[in-house]
Design a protein around this nucleic acid. Structure first.
Lengths: 211, 211
DNA sequence: TGTTGTGAATCTCTTCACAGCT
DNA sequence: AGCTGTGAAGAGATTCACAACA
């Protein structure tokens, strides 16, 4: 339980290490070295060890880290022990794809409600997730104890949805709309824009060709 | 046309500035100050000016930047003047959502082909994009002059798809599968994992609540 | 006065280097 | 010998501060 803040980059990498450990053939081994984790991810062995300092789990020299203990320690560091209920606003193509992606995947980080303004899209279940009218957001968020939200509405609706989420008690927002949300202090926002991601890839693909 | 490398972060922000300028009410104004761009994005005015140094477009003191010229200069810096054709591999829920997202949006950065191994999904058009069997990738990539790819296949197929893309001449990959791709030097890869993105938001949402 | 463009300082993150362990 | 954990150095990104300008 370190008191120092952990950087966004480290948190992202810890999440990645855990996920890669689940899947890889290393999961069947009893123990793993930092350089093996590095080989799976985009990190160096140094960086892996540095990141693991934050979680406070120590490996042993010459034996490395016990895989199951390491995964559990990362979980204790990253996850809310009580679980985290998430909602999604905007049941379009992307919203549905995300519901499908998370469906039944992680009980401790589950999308438990989806919202939309369109009457035709609500009052049913999509990929196991209940859909409600946007007007019910505050009530459902309180009832279901939701503190994290995903925004997949069009750009011009995103800011207004963000404000409704904050008012409903949401403290963290993952935003896929192509705007930068303005939220009060105490609320964390991550913007992910598909166009920017693709433009970056196209730019560096072209630049690397030059050398 | 600066010879110095520009950082990934700056490229991402330049893409963001341009996108925000398109949409905001600033687009109708003749000129814009760095602090106005900063207010739309998550950057500071200092950072905006520093980033714009890379594109080589100069504003004028007391009048700022001419919006149309600025947008055009960023375009000349970021975009391939010949345009960039993109393909997508993996026609699942997420793949279809991405096809829909980019459909008709940017002629210079268009998804012109989609691929899947499932026979039932190919030989038709989705959101205006032609779908082919994965085996046709090399032929179609050459014919359509494709050098950027998007991966939306399951985790265990992603590495193999990445290798096929590279062999077909792709130099940049945007990967949505939850693995870190191994690609040869000269190929640029960006991994975006939805679970990691959401876990980061949940983590910081919880931490901020403490203070 | 209020802005741009940019050197210099600061802050953050990564990598190096190595002591200590098994 | 080969690993972990970590102080210290180095690299990279951001912010400060201010000259030049309109």
């Amino acid at each position: 339980m370190s008191l120092a803040d952990t950087s966004e980059k480290t948190i992202g990498r810890l999440s990645t290490y855990r996920r890669l450990l689940y899947r890889s053939d290393l999961a069947s081994q009893a123990s793993v070295y930092s350089h093996q984790i590095a080989a799976l991810s985009r990190a160096t062995a140094d960086q892996v060890r540095r990141d693991l300092m934050a979680v406070g789990y120590s490996g042993s020299p010459n034996k490395g880290y016990k895989v199951n203990e390491l995964v559990q320690s990362i979980g204790e560091f990253l996850d809310n022990p009580a679980g985290e209920n998430v909602c999604l606003v905007g049941i379009g193509n992307l919203g549905r794809a995300i519901l499908s992606y998370f469906s039944g995947r992680r009980p401790k980080l589950a999308i438990v409600a989806a919202f939309d303004v369109a009457v035709s899209k609500v009052n049913r279940a999509i990929h196991g997730c209940r859909c409600y009218p946007l007007d019910d957001l505050a009530a459902v968020a309180e009832r279901e104890n939701i503190h994290v939200g995903i925004i997949t509405v069009p750009a011009d609706a995103a800011q207004s949805v963000a404000e409704k989420l904050v008012e409903a008690g949401v403290r963290g927002i993952l935003n896929f709309a192509p705007v930068c949300l303005r939220v009060p202090p105490g609320v964390y926002t991550a913007d992910f824009d598909m166009t920017t991601a693709l433009e970056k890839v196209a730019y560096f693909a072209r630049k690397m060709g030059r050398n």
